[in-house]
């Protein structure tokens, strides 16, 4: 393998691992186009490397977020049921799906998510709206608290409209199964907007969850020979380093700033997905 190729792979992985950990996105959706268009890696090998990179982002960042008590593990475990069930449903119907239509609809829903988040941010000037636990969250003890490093205070929060977020997570899982993507772009807005969970907690909890479905997909990718060791190893190593840096940065950022960055990235991802759906 050429040293320059490895250097570029490492740089791309470092950047997408950092952003993935910072925004709860996994980073695969950023990495694949860069590897295909900049490095000329065949798309199936780029996807194979990226799915392992998503596992790397999830585990590396979650080890930091869980230790720092930002992740809401109970909420994550509850929503994991929805995303894995959804992924199984999606994978079962993958042969029947019209991929271009699906990408366009998914792109539109990402743009819708970013507009709703922007609207909420503009009206409230806060990265989240504090609401009490609803009956289900109360029953399952889903509410929590975390120490916000940037604000220097302990923040307590409830989880509202739990079933709504469970439903949206199920849909996110279906899309993951159909398109082979992580679905963090839906999980973070669902937790933040539907369930009124603080932005940092939503990001950390999304990262906690995405590794699980990605791990199951990664095994299938390797089994089908979509994993070139020379491409995948540098990408995963770069992602691990980037994710650690990203997870350590999140705590120091203001929630409002994090939400602004998330809105912009979500909008760009939505536009890219639509472009890909209509054949650009």
């Amino acid at each position: 393998m050429q040293p320059l190729f490895m250097l570029y792979s490492l740089a791309i992985a470092l950047g997408s691992g950092f952003l993935g950990a910072l925004l709860g996105l996994g980073g695969g959706v950023i990495m694949v186009p860069l590897m295909v268009f900049l490095l000329g890696v065949p798309i199936h090998l780029a996807s194979g490397a990226s799915i392992l990179a998503v596992v790397a982002t999830s585990s590396a960042s979650a080890s930091v977020y869980v230790r720092d008590e930002i992740t809401n593990m109970r909420l994550g475990m509850f929503l994991e049921l929805a995303t894995t069930l959804g992924a199984l449903t999606g994978a079962s119907f993958v042969a029947m799906a019209a991929e271009s239509l699906l990408k366009t609809v998914f792109g539109l829903s990402l743009i819708y998510g970013s507009v709703v988040m922007w609207y909420q941010l503009r009206n409230t000037r806060r990265s989240w709206v504090n609401k009490p636990n609803d009956w289900l969250a109360e029953k399952l003890s889903l509410g929590g608290s975390y120490y916000d490093e940037a604000r220097g205070e302990q923040i307590s929060y409830g989880v509202s409209r739990t079933l709504g977020t469970f439903g949206v997570s199920y849909v996110a899982g279906i899309i993951s199964g159909l398109l082979g993507i992580g679905g963090g772009g839906i999980k973070v807005p669902a937790m933040n907007v539907v369930s009124s969970v603080p932005m940092k907690v939503a990001v950390a909890t999304s990262n906690f969850m995405i590794g699980v479905t990605a791990a199951a997909s990664a095994l299938v990718y390797i089994r089908h020979g979509f994993c070139d060791g020379f491409i995948t190893a540098p990408v995963v190593l770069g992602t691990l380093a980037g994710s650690y840096m990203g997870a350590r940065t999140t705590g120091r950022l203001r929630g409002v700033f994090l939400k602004r960055v998330f809105i912009v990235v979500l909008l760009l991802l939505g536009l890219r997905m639509i472009a890909s759906g209509v054949g650009f």
């Binding site: 109970r74 475990m77 509850f78 994991e80 049921l81 894995t84 069930l85 992924a87 199984l88 994978a91 079962s92 399952l140 199964g177 699980v212 479905t213 791990a215 199951a216 997909s217 095994l219 299938v220 089994r223």
Partner: peptide
């Protein structure tokens, strides 16, 4: 038990997904 069952269900779903995927 609720959360133990949640975790076990997720593992079972992943196992089924893997068998179907392979």
């Amino acid at each position: 038990l609720v959360f133990a069952l949640l975790n076990i269900s997720v593992l079972l779903i992943l196992a089924v997904s893997f068998v179907l995927g392979v």
